[in-house]
Design a binder for these strands. Structure first.
Length: 879
RNA sequence: GGGUGUGUAGCUCAGGUGGUUAGAGCGUUACGUUGACAUCGUAGAGGUCGCAGGUUCGAGUCCUGCCACUCCCACCA
């Protein structure tokens, strides 16, 4: 017996545990069916589930469950990411609470601490994914720092190094002074701010009283200046080219050079050049062979190349200005809108800094990654994201992969004392290579830098499947994977890197399709963030409304290319939908509608049952087609509409007279049909709402087979002729209900109704369905009009059918006249439209014959209806 | 500066290849406790589809321009 109330808490977790225990998420490797595989975008080990995950993983689970039911060999490969900076940050923060820094511990102990920390709290997000219903094969859970995945990292790294695709270079990189590491371009976020523009002047060497005027937003960097640039087309300033300016405070002469980087229209037309601290200046410096002077320490304080060693940049800036003012060189300070780079994780200002770093030659790797998308080997859904991808890939810069962190994959690089580099997968191999190279034993030291987290994530599609060491059945079976589902915000971080790394390592795309979705925003459409305090915890939502409601919300709201605004109201609405289904199932249970093995939908005799079977098959086809096209909202709304609007609102109401009547044959068939349709609903709803569907499946009958593995119905014949009769009943009932409501006929008023229609079909419908119609529209009786229309009959028209209600004494006829006038006005409006079209020779000649025919039919029908309404009006003219 | 997307009912949004009277949920109005469900039912009100042109027999849908907003990338000495 089902509980009176739908209470997801009672069964969701229990059901999940059973699935997992029974191994239902594992692919049947012996099956000869097609493979279907999704690798999960690995959440950070430090992470907790947020609404973005809830969306991403719901969509994946829908696809996974759908394909599993299609009978494919299905693997959803789960795992987590070690998330270098993020994790190190969290662990360091925890240590800081005890007053310990990572340096107190030393590298090895610190890394141990991270592993310990991962052990105790690393499983949180995977537990939360289980609450959501994610049917991942947890027995294959991977972590980017696992030995297997680390082996993959080492192998690829060495191969790339030997292929010349990884190299070390001294370059200007984005430097994060909080973590004291280089970061990639993508980890820098630009923020608009109102800063200051400082105007001051440098004296010209040997020309007393002559100055060159400078404008800068960062005066403190002047100690790193090694030139001033002026455009050779700058008539006002070009005479200074070739002379020297004297850098004030430090009194160092620097050349005034000609370079087009200096735009005569901007600032003062003269630009101070600081090659070691500005990306543009670096290029200018290279063109002119300028020396580089580094003025910063790794923590972004000024160094001993400046008069202010140890001061942070802000303080040094003030000091510099004071000095310039003392020297009488400061001219003015203006507000200036500008964009300042910040570290996306650290939140501190990013400094361009000259350091030795390791790079991947991404411009080279991008070529194949671009080609396979051009050739359609990998498709973006929606397709428009291709453009974003191409745009970025075609302008890609070398990727800085070295991080001066501790938590991550230490690079497999060893240095001999003379600096010779040996890159091998193991220390022994490196040693052997070094010894051979030098002809004798040499001491090696290992590179301390670790790799950017995204390096190992880039291998995720094949490293999780066992590459390179396991001779993996899984790799053979599931690679390339079927589809990747992820947010547009990590196309560059991850999708692009996976494409490049996979094409390089595997010579095959990592996934055949990439489904890209938007962001989950708050109710007002604002981005959710902890700092704004507008985040909603999916776990709380699940506690309150059930996982099924949250999942269905995500599916129903997911339309391609748009963000989703979270709406608690709407989630509650989908909880109500689950309640509705629950109660429909209870209705079946109370009426002993049990699924029967002998039942075949093709043998059904009664129109009502034929009708619902055809509708159920239509709904199935709709869901199937939409899921195949990744149209999640259309798929979800299709089931929703069928369950609530068709099955509950019409079918259940229509079969009540049968179930409470005494035609045993009809009753039995109806019960069996009900059960069949209920089962069908559970099947097609299962990918969206796995919990309630399973709970009902298991409770409504003894089953041979689990719902999660039940076959998805395919290639069904739909009897399109089976629906006409019941569609007519629905139209008729709707028309009568409207009429009753518009005329304010009390619900208690039991009425007689007459039907007038020339069609012989309708004659038989009236007899066959009179009890259904009466029950649904609260009539005493309904029959064909036998005789003439009496003046007190109020009429309404539906299609070719005229419905007449004798209402003498029940109704205010002036209101009825008004209603009929309104109806005539509406018909006139439509008729004018039809006439305009049909009298247009162009339309009649050029539109397809079918369209013209339809238009004529509509016109004829409207004319007939108008005549009827006018007649009705005439009849009651004097009442 | 380069690129992308969006603008449809009070609100949040659907409307693959142009073709009935433009849909849903929520909200709202009226009625209703009828033997699954008030987490409900029935009926209704509510839209010049951002603006202006164009293509077409026919445009919410295609094209051009404009307005407003979103996001991404680059850069601003």
């Amino acid at each position: 017996m089902l509980d009176k109330n739908y209470n997801p808490k009672d069964f969701e977790e229990k059901i999940y545990e059973k699935w997992e225990k029974d191994g239902d998420f594992k692919p049947d490797m012996k099956s000869d069916k097609d493979a279907f595989c999704i690798v999960i975008p690995p959440p950070n080990v430090t992470g907790v589930l947020h609404m973005g995950h809830a969306l991403d993983d719901t969509l994946q689970d829908i696809l996974i469950r759908y394909n599993r039911m299609l009978g494919k060999k299905v693997l959803w490969q789960p795992g987590t990411d070690h998330a270098g900076i993020a994790t190190q940050m969290v662990v360091e923060r925890n240590l800081a609470k005890e007053g310990i820094s990572r340096h107190d511990l030393g590298r090895e102990k610190f890394i141990d601490t991270v592993w310990q920390w991962r052990k105790q709290s690393g499983g949180t997000i995977c537990k939360q994914l289980r609450r959501l219903g994610a049917s991942c094969d947890w027995s294959r859970e991977r972590f980017t720092m696992d030995e297997g995945l680390s082996a993959a990292v080492r192998k690829i790294f060495v191969k790339m190094y030997k292929d010349g695709l990884i190299y070390k270079a001294k370059k200007l990189v984005n430097w994060d002074s909080k973590f004291m590491t280089a970061i990639s371009d993508l980890e820098v976020v630009q923020k608009e701010t109102i800063g200051k523009m400082y105007y001051y002047k440098y004296p010209i060497e040997g020309e007393a009283g002559e100055y060159i005027h400078i404008a800068t937003t960062r005066p403190e960097t002047m100690f790193g200046d090694t030139a001033v640039a002026v455009s050779k087309n700058n008539d006002k300033l070009k005479h200074l080219i070739g002379k020297n300016a004297i850098l004030p405070i430090v009194n160092r002469p620097i050349p005034i050079i000609a370079d087009d980087h200096a735009d005569p229209e901007k600032g003062t037309g003269a630009v101070k050049i600081t090659p070691a601290h500005d990306f543009n200046d670096f290029e200018v410096g290279r063109r002119h062979n300028l020396p580089l002077i580094n003025i910063l320490n790794p923590d972004a304080t000024l160094n001993e190349n400046t008069p202010f060693p140890g001061l942070d940049t802000q303080t040094a800036r003030q000091k510099t200005i004071e000095k310039l003012e003392e020297l009488g060189l400061m001219e003015k300070i203006e507000d200036h809108p500008m964009v300042i780079p910040y570290g996306d994780r650290s939140g501190v200002v990013i400094e361009p800094l000259m350091t030795d770093q390791w790079f991947v030659d991404t411009p080279k790797l991008a070529k194949e990654a671009i080609r396979v998308v051009e050739d359609g080997e990998m498709e973006f859904v929606p397709k428009s994201y291709e453009k974003t991808y191409f745009e970025w890939m075609r302008n890609i810069q070398p990727w800085c992969i070295s991080r001066q962190l501790w938590w991550g994959h230490q690079m497999p690089i060893w240095y001999a004392e003379d600096g010779t580099i040996f890159c091998e997968e193991t220390e022994d191999e490196a040693q052997a290579a070094a010894d051979k190279h030098f002809g004798h034993h040499v001491e090696l030291t290992r590179e301390t830098d670790v790799l950017d987290t995204w390096f190992s994530s880039g291998l995720w599609a094949f490293s999780t499947l066992g590459w390179p060491y396991e001779n993996s059945e899984y790799l053979k079976t599931f690679y390339p994977t079927s589809v990747l589902v992820t947010g547009f915000d990590i196309i560059f971080f991850w999708v692009a890197r996976m494409m490049m790394m996979s094409m390089y390592a595997m010579k095959q795309v990592p996934f055949k399709k990439a489904y890209i979705h938007g962001l989950v925003r708050d109710e007002q459409g604002r981005k959710m963030s902890k700092s704004k305090g507008n985040t909603v915890d999916p776990m709380e939502t699940i506690d309150k409304y059930g996982a099924d409601a949250l999942r269905f919300f995500m599916a129903a709201m997911e339309t391609q290319g748009r963000d989703i605004n979270l709406s608690e109201n709407r989630i509650a609405g989908y909880r109500n939908f689950a309640t509705k289904l629950w109660n429909a199932a209870r209705f079946g249970e109370m009426n002993e509608a049990k699924p029967s093995k002998d039942f075949s939908p093709t043998l059904v005799k009664q129109a009502i049952n034929k009708w619902i079977i055809a509708k159920a098959k239509e709904a199935t086809l709709e869901v199937t087609n939409n899921l195949d096209a990744f149209r999640f909202s259309d798929a979800a709304n299709g089931v929703y509409q069928f369950v609530w609007g068709t099955f509950c609102d019409w079918y259940i109401e229509m079969i009540k007279p049968i179930l409470y009547g005494d035609d045993e044959t009809a009753k039995q068939e109806t019960k069996a049909t009900f059960a069949w349709v209920m089962d069908r609903i559970l099947v097609i709803l299962h990918p969206f709402m796995p919990f309630i569907t399973t709970e009902l499946w298991d409770n409504l009958a003894a089953r041979d087979e689990k719902l999660i593995k039940h076959a998805w119905p395919q290639d069904e014949a739909i009897d399109n002729h089976a629906t006409a009769a019941i569609d007519w009943v629905i139209d008729t009932v709707s028309a009568i209900r409207s009429l009753r409501s518009e005329m304010n006929l009390p619900a208690s008023a039991k009425l007689k109704a007459y039907i007038k229609d020339s069609s012989t079909d309708v004659s038989s419908y009236v007899k066959e369905f009179s009890n259904i119609i009466c029950s649904l529209s609260r009539l005493d009786s309904i029959e064909e009009l036998n005789g003439t229309i009496t003046p007190d009959m109020v009429q309404t028209v539906s299609g070719s059918t005229t419905i007449l209600l004798p209402l003498k004494g029940v109704v205010d006829f002036s209101a009825e006249r008004e209603r009929l006038q309104k109806e005539i006005a509406q018909l006139d409006k439509n008729l004018a439209g039809y006439a305009a079209k049909l009298s247009n020779a162009n339309f009649v000649e050029r539109a397809p014959a079918k369209v013209v025919e339809e238009e004529k039919k509509r016109q004829t029908e409207a004319l007939a209806n108008k005549a009827k309404v006018e007649a009705a009006l005439a009849r009651i003219a004097n009442l």
